[in-house]
Design a protein around this nucleic acid. Structure first.
Length: 321
DNA sequence: CGTGGTCAAGCGGTA
DNA sequence: TACCGCTTGACCACG
């Protein structure tokens, strides 16, 4: 038996006017004559984003959802060079504290997935440094919300740079330049173009990083279709984590556009996967990555209800027998 | 008011 | 080497 808890990404299609990713582009920022006023506007946007996050968290609790990925665009231009020295955390401290109080009352697993410009295996010092700055921002937000930062940020391995093996070794080399308090935040995910499950496991085992297995990516890109062979290794990377194992679930948009995410999750494919891992872990958190966000989660729960080996626990979790 | 074009970023593929 | 598409939601200028 395995308990499955489902989560979704960043925003709800059911809540109106509740974006956590409002923004101001850098081009727009530069055009504004009064810099102080421009920064105040950035702060208003950031406050609105974090406030909307709290609304999302309340929505999640109302629907039994205990697993959620926060938007990485909460603070527009937070890590832009032109805004160096801007104390963005100070301007949203109250809103972050509100989230902290909420999370003290209602348990929820909160994650980030910094965007794919965070590259820890780049040979370019500027890109590595910019990545570190972005990770610091994520850490500031987590600690600001009272969330222990360990294993909260999912990253991809990075660029292949025409030589996957060298690129993997570069990751190991660069890892030494990443501050320990940022290292501990990180999980690594197999991607759909460059680094397979096997590549990613190599790094995860060597550097003691939990792996986030993405089943869809694996189907799109692998050097050994048989993921089951390595499943025990995946589970083992979570041995030293305070959090249960987690993975990513999405479905191909179409056979022609296989790598793109579909609106909803193919329940048959999901069940087939779960039946294979059933019993290998007592609990697993599954991040639903679908265009229709929380609606995809709700639809999936409805479909699973009819399965003989599925026992519904609440609105977003179930047991598979 | 609705909407096509624009914005950011770095990689990867093509010419 | 230079460009474009990818990806994402939001914003903006236009009609």
């Amino acid at each position: 038996m395995t308990v499955v808890r489902m989560g979704y990404v960043a925003m709800s299609v059911h809540l109106q006017n509740c974006s956590p990713s409002q923004t101001m582009t850098h081009a727009r920022f530069k055009k504004l004559f009064d810099r102080d006023a421009a920064i105040r506007k950035l702060e208003r946007i950031a406050r609105s984003n974090v406030t909307n996050c709290l609304r999302l968290l309340k929505h999640n609790i109302a629907h039994d959802i205990a697993f959620f990925r926060l938007s990485s665009k909460l603070i527009p231009l937070a890590n832009h060079m032109d805004l160096k020295g801007w104390n963005y955390i100070k301007s949203i401290k109250k809103e972050l504290n509100d989230i902290e109080s909420f999370l003290a009352k209602y348990k929820m697993r909160i994650d980030f997935h910094p965007d794919h410009f965070v590259l820890l295996n780049s040979k370019k010092v500027d890109i590595l440094n910019q990545s570190i700055i972005t990770l610091k921002m994520h850490r500031n937000l987590l600690t600001g919300m009272g969330i222990h930062p360990k294993h909260r940020c999912v990253l991809h391995v990075g660029g292949a740079y025409d030589d996957r093996d060298k690129a993997l070794e570069q990751f190991i080399y660069n890892w030494g330049f990443v501050p320990v308090d940022l290292q501990e935040m990180i999980m690594l995910e197999n991607d759909d173009k460059s680094f397979t499950m096997n590549d990613t496991l190599y790094l995860c085992e060597k550097l003691a990083i939990p792996i986030v297995f993405d089943y869809h990516h694996h189907l799109a890109h692998n050097d050994n279709h048989n993921w089951q062979e390595h499943w025990d290794r995946v589970v083992s990377t979570w041995d030293n984590s305070p959090l249960p194992i987690k993975m990513h679930i999405s479905s191909p948009r179409s056979s022609d556009d296989f790598r793109a995410h579909a609106d909803y999750i193919d329940a048959k494919m999901f069940l087939k996967f779960l039946r294979e891992i059933n019993g290998s872990v007592s609990i697993i958190d599954c991040m639903i990555e679908a265009k229709k966000k929380d609606d995809a989660l709700f639809r999936l729960m409805k479909q699973l209800k009819h399965e003989d080996d599925v026992e519904i626990i609440d609105g977003a979790s179930f047991k598979i027998h």
